[in-house]
Design a protein around this nucleic acid. Sequence first.
DNA 1: TATTGTTATACTCTATAACTATA
DNA 2: TATAGTTATAGAGTATAACAATA
Lengths: 165, 165
Amino acid sequence: MSRKPSSRPQHRRPAQRGESTGAQVPGVEYGLLEDLMGYALRRAQIRIYQDFLDTMESWSITPPRFSAMIIIDNNAGMKLTELAAAMGIARSGAVEVVNSLEKLGFVSRTDSEVDKRAHVLALTSVGKKALTGIAQAIQAHDARISARLTTAEQTELRRLLGLLG
Amino acid sequence: MSRKPSSRPQHRRPAQRGESTGAQVPGVEYGLLEDLMGYALRRAQIRIYQDFLDTMESWSITPPRFSAMIIIDNNAGMKLTELAAAMGIARSGAVEVVNSLEKLGFVSRTDSEVDKRAHVLALTSVGKKALTGIAQAIQAHDARISARLTTAEQTELRRLLGLLG
DNA sequence: TATTGTTATACTCTATAACTATA
DNA sequence: TATAGTTATAGAGTATAACAATA
C-alpha cells in the first residue's frame, strides 16, 4: 500500500498525546481495568489533558512547556541543568523544551557572568506577557475540571493524590 | 558538535516516557503549579507510571499494551476498529499496539468469517498465560501504590477522580 | 459511498551516551 | 576529573490523511 508523498496535507492539527476522551465505551467489557486505581487515574488524566490542549491550542503550549515557563519565572537566574532537575527530566529534554520556548519567543538564554559554560534562563517580555494570559487560561481550565467537586472535596482529592504512589 | 556514529551504545535501557520521579525539588519555587489540581494529578501519575514500568519491565508491557490485552481478553471476536474505539485511540494507533503484541507472541489476527476486510483479535495461549502473570503483577502494583490509603479513602479517591474532568 | 486495516508522515516527550568547552 | 550545554540516536505514543480491499 503506497501513497503519493506530494499529496501530503499542509494544515493538519499537531498530533499531540492524548486526543482520546478517556471515556469508557458502552458494550465493551473492561474487566480488571475497572478495579485498578492506576487506570482510574489514567482515565481522569486523559480527559483533563484534552481540555488542557484545547485551552492552550492558540499558544502552542504543552504541559512540560507550561511547567518550564512557570518554573523559570519563579526562579530567577536558573540554569538549564537546574530546570531539568526541577522538572525531573534529563538535561537533553530540558534543551528541547527551552529550544521550543525560545522559538516561540517566550524564553531567552543569556551567557552566565560567573560560569562561561552556563546559560541563564529567563522569560522574555513577550514570554511574561504571554504567561499572564496562559496562567489565566490554565486557572480557568483547572477550575473547570474541578467544577463538580466542592471545595472540601478538592482539598481531600489533593490529599489523597499526595498519598498515592 | 559532532559525534562518531560508530560508537553508539548497544545496551541502553529503552527510553520510555516518565522516567522522572514526580517529586518536587527542595529550594525550587513551583509558583502557580502548586495550586493546580491538574498538576497534582500529573505528578501522581508520573510517580505511579515509574512503578508500572518497573513492574512490567520483564514483560515489555506498557499501559496501552496492557489495556489492549485486557480488553481483547474480555471481548471475544473483537475487531481492530472496535479495539481502537474501546481504547479511545486512532485506528492507526491500534495497529501499532496490536503489531507490538503480535511481535511479543501475545495476540493473533485471524481473518473474519463474516467480513473479509476485518481481522478478529484474540490472545494466543502464550498471551493468555502471560496475562495471568501480568495481571497478578499489576494488581500487586496497584495495591502498592494505594497502600497508604485506607479502603474508605481508596473508594473516595475513585469517586472524586470520576467527578474530575 | 462507507468501512476496515494499513501505511506514510509528523510531532511530543522521554531517555542514554558521547561530545565540546569550561570549571 | 567533573560539570554545563548540546547533539545524535532511539523508542513509545499519539495524530491525520490517503490508500486498497471489501461491504
